[in-house]
Design a protein around this nucleic acid. Structure first.
Lengths: 214, 214
DNA sequence: ACTGAATCACACTGGTCAGTCCAGTTCGAG
DNA sequence: CTCGAACTGGACTGACCAGTGTGATTCAGT
């Protein structure tokens, strides 16, 4: 079954092209990337690029869409253990730190910058990124919020509103700094954890049921 | 003194060029804008464009720099009346609504998208936007926070941290939605005021001194 | 070994773009 | 009115770019 090395020739070429496209588009933008450049970096002829993806636009859309779809796929098994004891702040802090660790990544931040810069040209890609990113995270978080409220651990009227508030309490500062200051401004893991803990403390002070943190 | 109509010919041309540049760059980006297009929209010859600004890059940098510098100039006289009575939440809500009204503007949002998309090519512009925008707002807000703490109206250890928290509690959601969903997703004034009030309530719950809102 | 599909190198088209050049025109200040 | 500075239109250069065409070559499955 292994043709020569696990992957068909065509598939290998295809992936090489996508890898090069990711590199170039994320670095130089849509207009700033040329197809000759791309073929060269892929170590593939330009014809092959056009055989696999019909046009520059198609390639761009396909690349960004696939990166977008798999963007927040590291965040699923949170609902497993929603605050075993009553330490809601600790649980939320861990939740926040996990999300931050996924999102505050050069690859995803570059993708976000790219898509934001191309909102006018590719509004659908931007909407897709919004749906698969923040919106998805918030919806998922809202479920957790509702569960915590049900157990009397949190006082939440509107789970979506609460989730939105928590989400941006977490993401707001680091995300917006990273957007403008570049990947060099990404806080290290320790700083992100401190930030997550602080956000959780603030949130619990507003939405907690009485104990808070102290 | 008025040469013909308040402004010298040269100055009129210059402004026409900048106006066209603002329109085109904000809409089509740096690479997506051509100098011929720009000259035509300015109703000025290409030579004149190059006489005033030496190159496409210079024009771009000058335009973005000037827009950036005057970005948050509507936010100065807040410190005038910091919560006459003890209604900190109300005061902060008004403060937040004012900031939102300035920032959530198509012109500034487009500028922000443009600059974010060009971070790699023009990192200095992005840094300048960061300094004149969020950073400036936060520093100014921190002063207010400290003043409120001094009067016993707020419990603030680290004014910068508190200001940062409040700032993104306000800006996070609407800003990031607007970045990806386009200017059509800008909430109306009423929604922004509701959001501001909510943010202020959450903030006071975490940083308030005991009364909160209810 | 054979065969058809995929890939290759490379030239080429038609178009765009930043920036320059130039000869003639407009404009405003004295 | 005069003069010089600013402006104009349009042609031009050199470079780049998306996408196509072609004929030779490689490769994988039979």
């Amino acid at each position: 079954m292994a043709t020569t090395n696990e992957l068909s020739r065509s598939e290998r070429k295809r992936r090489a092209i996508l890898a090069a496209a990711e590199d170039l588009f994320l670095r130089n933008g849509f207009l700033g990337t040329s197809m000759d450049e791309l073929a060269e970096l892929s170590e593939v002829s330009k014809q092959t690029v056009y055989a696999h993806f019909g046009s520059k636009e198609s390639l761009f859309v396909e690349l960004v869409s696939s990166m977008t779809a798999g963007a927040g796929d590291g965040l699923h098994d949170h609902d497993e253990h929603p605050a075993p004891d009553g330490d809601v702040a600790g649980y939320l802090a861990r939740y926040a730190a996990d999300e931050l660790a996924v999102v505050m990544t050069p690859r995803l931040l570059k993708l976000r910058r790219l898509v934001i810069g191309e909102v006018e040209r590719f509004p659908d890609l931007a909407r897709a990124l919004y749906e698969h990113g923040p919106s998805r995270a918030i919806r998922s978080l809202a479920v957790t919020m509702a569960a915590l409220a049900e157990r009397g651990l949190l006082s939440v009227d509107d789970p979506i509103e609460a989730a939105t508030t928590f989400n941006w309490l977490i993401m707001g500062a680091p995300m917006n700094e990273a957007m403008l200051l570049g990947d060099g401004a990404i806080p290290d893991a320790a700083a992100l954890q401190r930030h997550a803990a602080h956000a959780a403390r603030v949130f619990v002070a507003a939405y907690g049921v009485g104990d808070g943190t102290r």
